[in-house]
């Protein structure tokens, strides 16, 4: 059972951390074109750079397009309505349509080396820190 207990703790901890920020938005270090766009995104900071995550259920990886232009990064895609004609719908709640959302990245990141994957309907976009922004040790020269 230990495995499950850990998973619950992890979930509670993650929900708590996300809640704190949802209630008190941090000053914009990362700029979406405006809040309230589709899809909602979460941005995380890791050791290597930032990770942008968005829930895109029903999107195959090839149905999501990511383009970068300078420091502007755009996520776009389209979810088609089901075209099944036989029978009738009792419920239709799942949204469909097009989306496009643009972000302005901080200038210590390197969008040239960004990578993305869509797994289980969740987009993960990694933008690494620019080499110049990485911490480095400066050797002290002995004179």
């Amino acid at each position: 059972m230990a495995f499950f207990t850990d998973a619950f703790d992890d979930l509670l901890r993650l929900q708590g951390r996300l809640d704190t920020l949802l209630r008190n938005p941090a000053p914009a270090l990362f700029g979406p074109s405006g809040p309230g766009g589709y899809p909602p995104v979460n941005v995380f900071r890791g050791k290597e750079g930032i990770v942008v995550r968005a829930e895109l259920p029903g999107f195959a990886p090839e149905e999501v397009t990511i383009t970068s232009e300078g420091r502007r990064l755009t996520i776009s895609g389209e979810r088609k309505p089901s075209t099944e004609e036989r029978g009738g719908y009792h419920r239709r709640e799942r949204p469909w349509g097009k989306f496009s959302r643009t972000f302005v990245l901080p200038d210590d990141l390197d969008p040239e080396r960004a990578s993305a994957q869509v797994r289980h309907g969740v987009l993960t976009l990694r933008v690494p820190l620019a080499e110049a922004a990485k911490p480095r040790q400066i050797a002290v020269q002995v004179s």
Binding site: A7, A26, F30, V43, F44, R45, G46, K47, R53
Partner: peptide, 20 residues
């Protein structure tokens, strides 16, 4: 149940939705 292993070592910086 959502997979949480992808959230290891990540600190939220800007959020618009919760995970569950």
């Amino acid at each position: 149940r959502v997979t949480l292993e992808d959230y290891k070592d990540l600190e939220p910086a800007y959020t618009e939705y919760n995970v569950g």
